[in-house]
Design a binder for these strands. Structure first.
Length: 188
DNA sequence: GAGACCAGCAGGG
DNA sequence: CCCTGCTGGTCTC
């Protein structure tokens, strides 16, 4: 349901790194992902990270520990899988709220919020995103913040293309292309 | 507070 | 293609 035209994504700012992250590695149509959840406010299962597994599970878990050194990490296949099942099911009718917990400065949060405002399948350039935020000169800063996004797919940084046509993507340009192709195939 | 770092961009050769 | 200047938030001293 994440690809619905207007997914009801709710961004929950975190003040500090979470004490406990429950995580699991699971399969999706785009490959294996590592997904983590935290308790945030009234949401028990707020998604705080989605990484693609590029090399091995072991490498990805190492990344997880490096990125979140202050958080206790607990493997919890069952509850993570049940959240992921809803998220990735091919059901446009399901429009439940998707809570996402994020840790970042105000500026970064506003960039991520702007990304979520993009429609499924719609792309835009870094400068267009900066303009949309009312900060037309802060292009490089926007790019910086986009790169710090922890929640692949749900915070759709794959919908950003650079003006010169290059399709760089943290998780590889072929994955970016797959995501965009999938999204535009749903538009009809 | 200084200086380096960036998934940008436009312009010039 | 490569180089340059401009830009602004964040991180590390």
């Amino acid at each position: 349901m994440w690809f619905n035209e207007k997914p009801r994504i709710c961004l929950i700012p975190l003040e500090n790194p979470p004490e406990l992250i429950r995580f699991s590695i699971l399969a999706t149509k785009f490959g294996r992902i590592l997904m983590g959840m935290v308790n945030a406010g009234q949401h028990e299962d707020a998604i705080c990270l989605i990484y693609f597994v590029e090399k091995s599970d072991k490498e990805t878990l190492k990344e997880l520990r490096q990125r979140w050194p202050k958080s206790e990490l607990l493997q919890d296949d069952k509850s993570v899988q049940s959240v992921a099942d809803k998220l990735f099911e091919d059901n446009k009718e399901n429009n439940d709220v998707i809570p996402i917990a994020i840790l970042g400065t105000e500026f970064q949060q506003s960039v991520w919020a702007a990304l979520i405002g993009l429609k499924s399948g719609e792309t835009c350039t870094y400068s267009q995103l900066a303009e949309r935020m009312g900060r037309p000169n802060a292009v490089r800063a926007v790019a910086n913040a986009v790169a710090k996004n922890e929640v692949a797919i749900l915070i759709p940084c794959h919908r950003i293309v650079s003006q010169n046509g290059a399709t760089k993507y943290h998780w590889g340009s072929s994955l970016k292309q797959q995501l965009l192709t999938f999204e535009s195939s749903l538009a009809n």
